[in-house]
Design a protein around this nucleic acid. Structure first.
Length: 495
RNA sequence: GGGGGCGUAGCUCAGCCUGGUAGAGCGCCAGUUUUGGGAACUGGAAGUCGCAUGUUCGAAUCAUGUCGCCCCCGCCA
C-alpha cells in the first residue's frame, strides 16, 4: 500500500516532520524569521490542549490574569542570572514612530528607555507582586497567564523552537520554602497528567542539573519526552525560584509576629512546543495521529455519493448518523463528529482526514444505507477497513476511541522502552554510542554531581536531560569521570 | 556570530556556466468516461523568476546589497 506522505520517518526525520505539519495543515512559516502562522486545524488542537491545561491550573487554585508584552529594560536588569541567561535572545523596541524618508518608512522618535518584548514574565509580574503583597494574609498568590513570548532563536523550527511562541506561564508567591517547593512539584504533576494522560506522550519527571537550570532559579524540574528519532524533548518545566526574584523585586510580607520577610516564588510553563511533541511522538508515514482527547474531530463521516439519484438519501443518513454518534460520550464529553460534505472525491477526503490524524473515519454509501452498516477505518490500522452494523458502531464508538487512545500510549511506551540503551558503563561506551549519527536514545547512568564535568559531553552532542525523581539508590560509577556515584541521570541528545 | 548550499507556478524542480523576454511533473479548473484503497483521457488557467540597486540595447541568467529557508559549528529556561 502507498504511504500518504512522500517522505518516510525512517529516511529523514526532520523532513518527515515538516511534511506531517504541511499535509495535516497545521502551520506554516510566515515571512518573519522564526515566526509561524498557526492554521485552523493546528489552532484547534492547541485549543484542546489549552482547555485541558487551563482546567487543571484553575483546579489547583490559580487565577488567570494578563501582563503587558513590553517590559522596561530596568526591570529585567534586576536579577543578575536572569539577565545573563536571556540577554542574547532579547527582542528590543527602541522607537515608537515611523517617518517617510526618501520614500521609505524609517524608525523615528527613539524611546527614552528601550522596552524589551517579554521572553518570560518573572520580572514584570514580580514587580506587581511587590506592590500587591503586604501581609501573610495575601499569601499564597497564585497566578497564571496565557500569552505570547519572544526569544530570538538562531535555529527556528515549527512548533519546536520558534522566535515567537504561545504558552502559559504560572507565577506564584509563598510564605515558606516548603510551600513553594510543594507548588513546584504540584504543577509538574499537572503537566505530567496532561501530557501523559491526555496527549499520551510518556514522560520522565526529574530535576535539571545546574548547567540546564532556568536563569535565576534554585531548582528546575522538567518532564522529558522521547521523540520517534530517539532524541529528548523538554515538554514542560517548573521552577523553584527561592528568594532570588523576591529579593530582586523586593517582594516582602509582614508575618504574624510583625517581621518583614521575603516571599518564595515559583514559575512554570508549557508552550506550543507540546504540539511538536505530539507530532513527533504519534505520527507515522501516513501523517498525524491524534489521541482522542486532543482531536478537534474524533469521528469523520464521508458520504459515498455515487449518483444524483441516491445523493440526498445518503447525505440525510450521514447527518442522522452524525447526530446519533454525537449523542454518545467519550471522557465525559459528547463525541466530536463531522460529516464531510465538501465537494471532493471520497478517496481524497479519506486521505485528507488520515493525514490530519482523525482517530475514526467512517464511509457511508448507498449500500450501507440499505444494510444499516458503516465502513470503519481506524487511524492506526488504515489498511483494514471494517464493515460493521451502524448500531454496533454507535454503541461502541466510546470504547473504540478508548482502545485507539490506549494503543497510541502503548506504542509510544514500547518505542521508548526499545530506545533505552543498556550496557553503557563508561565514558568510552557513551561516546562510542552517541558519537555515531544514529546514536540516539536514553542512557540511564550515574553522575557524580559535579556540574563542571557536564561540558565534556558536548563533543558528542549529549546533555544530561534530567535527574529522575525516581532514583534507584544504587551505587555505581559516574559515566563521565568513572568516580563512585549514586545519582541516576538521563543522558541523551536533545532538541 | 563563522562556514557551505538554496530561493523560478500551490508543491517538487529544470533553465543560469555561455544574457535575447518562462518550462516539466504533480496539484488546480472544465468536459467525457469512471467510482467502496489516492481513477483515465482530452483541453485549460496559473509565475512582477524572493526583494533592491548596478552593469547592459536587453537580466531568471552577471555584480553588489538585503530578506528568508536548509546543512555543519556555535548559542539555546
Amino acid at each position: 500500500m502507498k504511504n500518504a506522505l512522500r517522505i518516510r520517518r525512517s529516511e529523514n526525520f526532520a523532513e518527515w516532520y515538516q511534511e506531517v505539519i504541511r499535509e495535516a495543515d497545521l502551520a506554516e512559516h510566515s515571512g518573519v524569521r522564526g515566526c509561524m502562522v498557526i492554521k485552523p486545524w493546528g489552532w484547534a488542537i492547541w485549543e484542546k490542549l489549552q482547555e485541558r491545561m487551563d482546567r487543571l491550573i484553575k483546579a489547583t487554585g490559580h487565577d488567570n490574569c494578563y501582563f503587558p508584552i513590553f517590559i522596561p529594560l530596568e526591570l529585567i536588569e534586576k536579577e543578575a542570572a536572569h539577565v545573563e541567561g536571556f540577554a542574547k535572545e532579547m527582542a528590543v523596541v527602541t522607537h515608537h514612530r515611523l517617518e517617510k524618508k526618501d520614500g521609505k518608512l524609517v524608525p523615528a522618535a527613539p524611546l527614552e528607555s528601550p522596552l524589551i518584548i517579554r521572553p518570560t514574565s518573572e520580572t514584570i509580574i514580580g514587580e506587581a507582586m511587590a506592590r500587591w503583597i503586604k501581609s501573610y494574609r495575601d499569601l499564597p498568590l497564585k497566578l497564571n497567564q496565557w500569552a505570547n513570548v519572544v526569544r530570538w532563536e538562531m535555529r527556528p523550527r515549527l512548533f519546536l523552537r520558534t522566535s515567537e511562541f504561545l504558552w502559559q506561564e504560572g507565577h506564584t508567591a509563598h510564605a515558606t520554602r516548603e510551600e513553594a517547593l510543594e507548588e513546584t512539584h504540584t504543577m509538574l504533576g499537572v503537566y505530567r497528567r496532561v501530557v501523559e494522560g491526555d496527549m499520551r506522550i510518556p514522560v520522565i519527571t526529574g530535576e535539571k542539573t545546574p548547567h540546564e537550570r532556568f536563569p535565576g532559579a534554585d531548582e528546575t524540574h522538567a518532564i522529558e519526552a522521547m521523540m520517534q528519532d530517539g532524541r529528548a524533548l523538554q515538554a514542560g518545566t517548573s521552577h523553584f525560584l527561592g528568594q532570588n526574584f523576591a529579593k530582586a523585586a523586593g517582594i516582602q510580607y509582614q508575618d504574624k509576629e510583625g517581621g518583614l520577610r521575603h516571599v518564595f516564588t515559583t514559575s512554570w510553563g508549557t508552550s506550543t512546543r507540546l504540539i511538536g511533541a505530539l507530532i513527533m511522538t504519534h505520527s507515522d508515514d501516513d501523517g498525524l495521529r491524534l489521541p482522542p482527547r486532543m482531536a478537534p474531530r474524533q469521528v469523520v463521516i464521508i458520504p459515498i455519493l455515487r449518483d444524483e439519484a441516491g445523493r440526498d438519501a445518503v447525505i440525510e443518513a450521514a447527518k442522522k448518523l452524525g447526530e446519533r454518534i454525537a449523542a454518545q460520550h467519550f471522557d465525559g464529553e459528547p463525541i466530536r463528529v463531522q460529516v464531510d460534505l465538501k465537494d471532493d472525491s471520497p478517496a481524497n477526503k479519506r486521505w485528507g482526514w488520515i493525514k490530519k490524524g482523525v482517530p475514526l473515519i467512517l464511509e457511508l454509501g448507498p449500500r450501507d444505507v440499505a444494510n444499516e452498516s458503516v465502513a470503519l477505518t481506524r487511524r492506526d490500522s488504515i489498511g483494514e477497513k471494517r464493515i460493521l452494523p451502524m448500531a454496533e458502531f454507535i454503541a461502541e464508538a466510546p470504547s473504540l476511541l478508548e482502545a485507539f487512545d490506549q494503543a497510541l500510549l502503548t506504542q509510544a511506551l514500547d518505542y521508548r522502552k526499545a530506545k533505552m540503551i543498556d550496557g553503557i558503563k563508561t565514558f568510552a561506551d557513551l561516546t562510542a554510542h552517541f558519537g555515531q549519527d544514529s546514536g540516539t536514545g536514553f542512557v540511564i547512568g550515574k553522575w557524580s554531581g559535579d556540574p563542571d564535568i557536564e561540558e565534556r559531553l558536548s563533543s558528542v552532542g549529549v546533555t544530561i536531560r534530567c535527574l529522575p525523581h525516581e532514583q534507584s539508590g544504587t551505587e555505581g560509577k559516574c559515566l563521565i569521570t568513572g568516580e563512585p556515584a549514586t545519582i541516576d541521570a538521563v543522558y541523551a541528545k536533545a532538541y
